[in-house]
Every structure is written in C-alpha cells, then in structure tokens.
Design a protein around this nucleic acid. Sequence first.
DNA 1: AATGAATGAGAGTTCATTCAT
DNA 2: AATGAATGAACTCTCATTCAT
Lengths: 216, 216, 216, 216
Amino acid sequence: MSPRDPLSPRKRPTQRRARETVDAILGGAARVFGERGYAGGTTNRIAEAAGVSVGSLYEYFPNKDAILVALGKRQLDEMSRDVAAVLEAARDSQLALDTLMRRFVEAMLEVHERRPDLHRVIFSEAPHPPELHACVLQLEETLAHTVEALLERCPDVALADRDTAAHLVVQTVEALTHRYVHHHRIHDLPREAFVNEVVELLRAYLASADSMRSSS
Amino acid sequence: MSPRDPLSPRKRPTQRRARETVDAILGGAARVFGERGYAGGTTNRIAEAAGVSVGSLYEYFPNKDAILVALGKRQLDEMSRDVAAVLEAARDSQLALDTLMRRFVEAMLEVHERRPDLHRVIFSEAPHPPELHACVLQLEETLAHTVEALLERCPDVALADRDTAAHLVVQTVEALTHRYVHHHRIHDLPREAFVNEVVELLRAYLASADSMRSSS
Amino acid sequence: MSPRDPLSPRKRPTQRRARETVDAILGGAARVFGERGYAGGTTNRIAEAAGVSVGSLYEYFPNKDAILVALGKRQLDEMSRDVAAVLEAARDSQLALDTLMRRFVEAMLEVHERRPDLHRVIFSEAPHPPELHACVLQLEETLAHTVEALLERCPDVALADRDTAAHLVVQTVEALTHRYVHHHRIHDLPREAFVNEVVELLRAYLASADSMRSSS
Amino acid sequence: MSPRDPLSPRKRPTQRRARETVDAILGGAARVFGERGYAGGTTNRIAEAAGVSVGSLYEYFPNKDAILVALGKRQLDEMSRDVAAVLEAARDSQLALDTLMRRFVEAMLEVHERRPDLHRVIFSEAPHPPELHACVLQLEETLAHTVEALLERCPDVALADRDTAAHLVVQTVEALTHRYVHHHRIHDLPREAFVNEVVELLRAYLASADSMRSSS
DNA sequence: AATGAATGAGAGTTCATTCAT
DNA sequence: AATGAATGAACTCTCATTCAT
C-alpha cells in the first residue's frame, strides 16, 4: 500500500516454512549467480535452482536486485563474522605485529576463497545499489576499527594517524586478496609467498619510524 | 563461414573512412557505457551515439562484447602509454624512491580519474572475456617490468625478489587508486593525503631492510 | 463435482457467520474495485480489504468474476429498491407529469452519485458476464413497468405505445445520469440545470400530442 | 532520451513500409480487441494478428495502452468524419426538424454498428487515459456545434438556450444509439421503430414551445 | 557500404487459483 | 472453516541481431 523501499525484502518470513523458502531462494541465487553471472541469473533460473516457483520468489523479494542485495548482505555478514572472530582471538594474546597481520590476511583470503565467483558477481559485476554499498562501507569501517584497536596495543607501531593507517590497511588487504583470488594470481605467486609478501608490506608500513607524514 | 574468433573486430579497417567509423563507434560506446552502464549500453544506443546505423556497427563488430573488448583495449593502451611516459621520464633523472612512487601513484590516479565511470564499467561491471583479461595481465606485466627497472637503479632499495615486489607494487597501486576513485574515497581522505599515505606504504615496503623473506 | 454454474456463489450462506464473511468480501471488493479499477482489484487485495484470507474468499466465490457479479447484483438491487421507493411514493399522490419525472431523474442521479467509481467499474469497465447483463435488463424492465404504471394515471399523457415510451424514458434517464456523473458533466451544466433540462426532454416527449408515430 | 508522453506513438512512420506496419498493427489491434476484449488483447496476439513481430509493435507504440489510444482516436476521427458529412449535407437543403434529427440518429447508429465490439471495448471496457477522454469531449463539442448551427436555421425551433440543447441532443443520441447497439436492444424494438422513437423524443424537445426553462 | 525496419527469444513480473496445514 | 504460502501460465516489454532495400 505504501511506497516501499524497492530493494528490501517483501515480507519478514515468520513461519518456519517461509524461512526455509527464503533460505532456499538465497541458496539458489548464490548458485546461479556464481555459475552464470549477474545477467545469467534470471529469476526463473534462481527459482528453479531453489526448488521453488517464481511466484514464491516474488512473494519474498520485490525484484531481482533485492535478491542480490540480500545475498550481498549475507556475504558481508559472514565475512564480518569470520574476520572479526580471528581478530578478536588475536586481541587477547600478546601478538607481534606481523603475526597479527598474517592472521588478518589469511582470514580475508579464506573469506574470498569460499565462493569466489559469487563474490565477484555480487561485488563487482552486478549493479551496486546504494543500500549494498552502505553495507560494504560499514564492514570496512568495522574492520578498520578493530584493526586500529589492535594496533594500539602493538608496541612497535608508532603512527601519527592510526585511524587513517587502519583504513589503508583494510583497503589494501581487501583489494589484494580479492585480486589474488579473482583476477590474476599476481605473478603466479603461490599462496604462502603471497601472504608473506603482503604481510611484509603491511609490517613495513606500520612499523615505519617516519611518523611525520601529514594526513589531512 | 569458418568459425572466427568471435571477439576480434570483423575487418581490418584499412580504408580511412572505415577507421573513422570504428572510432566513432568506440567513442559512442565509451559515452553510452560510461553514462548508462553495461546493461544500459544497448547496441542501438551505441550506434545512435556514434551517429551510425546499427547495421554499420555490426559491419565492424561481430557482437556487443567485441565492442567492449575493443574499448577495453583502447583504454588499456592509453593507460599504458600515459603511465609509461611518466615512468620513462623518471628513469633518466636520478630520483629518490619516494618521488618515483609518487609519480607512479599520481599517474595512475590521473588515469583513473579521466573517465571513471567508463573505467568502472569496463573493468568491473561488464563480463570479462578472457581476451580482455589477457590484455589487463599484459599491462600489469609491462608496468611491473618498468617499475622493476626503476627499482634496480634505486640505491636505497634492497630486495630479495625484486620481480615479485614490482608486481605487488603495481597491484597495490592499481587497486588502491581504483578504489579511491570509484568506491569509497577511503576514510574521506583528501587526494593529497591519500597519495602521501600510499607513497609511504610503498616506500616503507621497498626500503625495508628485511630482505630475508622468501618468495617462492 | 458436477459442472456448476461458474458464477453463482458457491454455497448458500445459511449460517450467520458465513453471511458476515460474504458481506465482508463484497465490502472489500466494493472498496478495492472502486479505488483501483477492475484490473487493480486482485483477489488478494480484495481478501485483505475484507479482512479475510484468499482461501476463505474462494470458499464463498468460485472465481473473481463471481465476486463482480454478486457485487453488481447488490448494486442493482439497491438501485431498484431506492428508485422504486421514490416512484411508489409518487404513485399514490396525484402528481403532475414533470414532477414525476423530476423525482425519477433525481433518484437516478442520487443512485449514481452514491459510489460513482464502483458503479463505473462494475457497469462499464469490467467484463459483462451474461448473468449480470440479465440482471441489468431485469432492473430496466422493472423500472419501465413502474414508469408505465405511473404514466397510465397521468391525464396529460397520450401515447400510442405506452410500453415503448416507458422503456425509452428509462434508457434515457439511465444513460444521461450515468454520463452526467461519470464522463462529462455535459457542457458543465450545474446539477439543477441538468435535471431541468432532462425533465423538459421527457415532459415534451410524453406530453407530445402526436400519437401517430408507429412503433412496430 | 527526453521523458516522452507515455501514450503517444513512438515514432512517426515516415517510410512507406513503416506506415504499412503501423496500419497493420492498428488493424490487428482492432480485430483482437473486438474479439477478445481489452484484457484478451495481448500485445503478442495483436502483433500476430497484424502479421508483425512484437518487436515491431513496440517500435511504434511505447506500450499497450498507446495502441488503444491510437485506435480510439482513429475511431473518433472516423465517426467525426462520417457524421459530419451527413450533417453538412443536411445543412444546405432546407429540411424539416425531424428529418434532420432522423439523419443524425441514423448516422450515429451506423457508426456504432460498424464495429460494435471494438467500439464497446475502446469506449467502455478499457481504461480511459485522459488523452483519449479529451478526444471524446472534442468530438462531442464538434457535433454539438454542428447541431446547433442546424437548429439555428430551423424555423420551428424556439429555445432559450440553444447551446445547452444541442449538447443534450448529442449526448442523448450518442447514449441511446450506443445502448441500442451494445446492450439491450431496448425492449426488442426493431431498428426503424427505435429511430422513430428517438426522433420523436428529440423533435418534441426541440419544438417545445416552453422556452422558459432556466439553464443556470 | 550503409541503412534502419523487422525479428523473436527470453527477460522480469503478476495474479487467479490451489492445497497443505 | 480458515489460513496464507505456494504455484505457474501468461503477461508486457527489451534488445542483440539480421536482412531487404
């Protein structure tokens, strides 16, 4: 009746059956988008892959993009959860800077390796509705905060602008792991060597004594 | 009649007029893709924007994706040319490491800023035919070689694996400038501060004394 | 299991609750059809507006058109009742022809003005199942009979074919009031002027001395 | 490019072939709408009936309703032309009032009888976009003007408000002929008798000596 | 070589109707 | 009796591509 947000799910699935249907749809969408790309992920194919009728699909999602957004959010939540878990674990133990970074890089790598094609479709091939973009930004913000908190406890880190550094670290790790997985395995570096290299990049940056660079 | 490579331009535009038509089509495609995204860039719209009939468009390109590929190659050539020019210029003069990197980062930023929307469409929104992918890899290879050659002359760079480092530098700069321009201006950093920060990241990495890390 | 008349209500609502449900559905249908037209009146929306589930709706009506028919009949009954009441009242008193006609026209106008949108949807926008058509004919027949009976008592009416005249009067009044309300307020005539004009049209016709025209 | 009127034809068919296609589409639409009603007149069926592909249909009409509007306008133009021709012919000759009216009624009857089903679909079953409504009003206005001009020359017509009377005459004839053809052949009156009756109705009204009724 | 009208498979989406609960 | 999730045929409309001119 009221003009609804055209990308948010249509109804909250209260009953058990409904929740299962929504899950099935997201599962089908993940499979189809991953295998056939955004354009190839037609609503009919998604419904079929989900073992559900198109009608049911539209019962829960107002349009195709809403499915993509829901899927993207689900992915981001998963990433957030997994990476956060790793970083939280690191927080308590007194770890050296490079061990910390290594954990972070490996967590991000794993997250990207989980469903690489789907990830690529959601976060680069498909249209990026602002709602999803906001979620990405939020994830990055959260990660940056956690990273910053970790850096705070590292004795060997001396930075003028810890906030900015944390953001740059997050961006760099996100970008490089994404590229390593999706695009070009970066000079055919084996995985371990790649991790070493990225860790060294970060370590050198964060441990750098030059705390004079401006950041405004 | 024989099965042709479906993405290479249909005929070598030997004649002058033909060349102009091809240019017009690519120009139209650049405009339309940039303004309306990949899906919105219909062949009819491209033809219209190029001031040419659809029929003519198909005279020179076997299908829509061939246009995308040609456009992507053109972009990559341009990038290659511009960035190479900057780096070549740096080669002769005896420049400090960070000045070098600054030049590189700024060249990449400029290249991304030139037609950001088009760039985004070609290199992330659209499907990536392997042929285009190969071109990207080649560009990266070229850049990495040039960077490596520069590093060789830098007295303050001592690296175990200069090759790998050069590749990582290229990937990092490409990724971070792309993200800075397209996605999320990284913690709202002003351009200059962003450049400073990236330069510092690279400088610290390359100047790092720790040349013990393995890379195989 | 036997092939049933597909437009008559599914079960005689003998029980009180059932009757209430049917009323609720018709009420919902009236609201929804009136507000959103025939095509916009989906069975789900009707059920929702009625505060009932679609399942229940189909418990009482075999299909969407059956609802329309029931609603149409309800409207026609109402019209019949209201106009009849006015005419009955006129029957006893000894009224002049034009007063009679004025009463008739005004009653019809009121009936049309009551729920103009719904009326329009039922009687012109929607498909006209024969069953509903029959009801309309019957209403017209009834009205024509009543009018004829009235004319019989009018001293100043001298007609060769009173039956035909009565039918024409009914048709004319129905058509003109419908048009006045729905379509085009006829040259922007204020209501009172419109009524005067129609009354004069009828009066002139009925009082006409020329009783020679044939009607077979 | 610019936001276009969503109901006006998409492109002016300049070439001969194009004009033929448009005509074929309207022809197909007339057939299909007439035979299967508005809802049954699907764009695919229309295209098929027109011997044309759906794509072509959408080349010339932005959506289904635009076809309906174009068809409605064509019908109205035809009506306008035919009825006007009859009335023009009557203008010169010195005709009695009832002969005049008879001509008018018969012309309207013929026009309605030409394609009754199509007429009904366009002017009552289908949605009435304001653009089409405006055309209807214009037709009525035109007819009313012509009728008024005719009445002016009739010696036996004495009316207070010739303008209003002309409009009422037009409305009455339009409504009664429409009903005679479509709905209920009015008490099963044979066509000739019906015409007589309507003519008498109009004659009595127009010739009425009572020119005192107010019209404000 | 160039045109642009024509094509038609297939996309997203709706909604009358059914049926397990 | 009542529910409302599920169904899927059918709809409107798009667009990469072809081909008569």
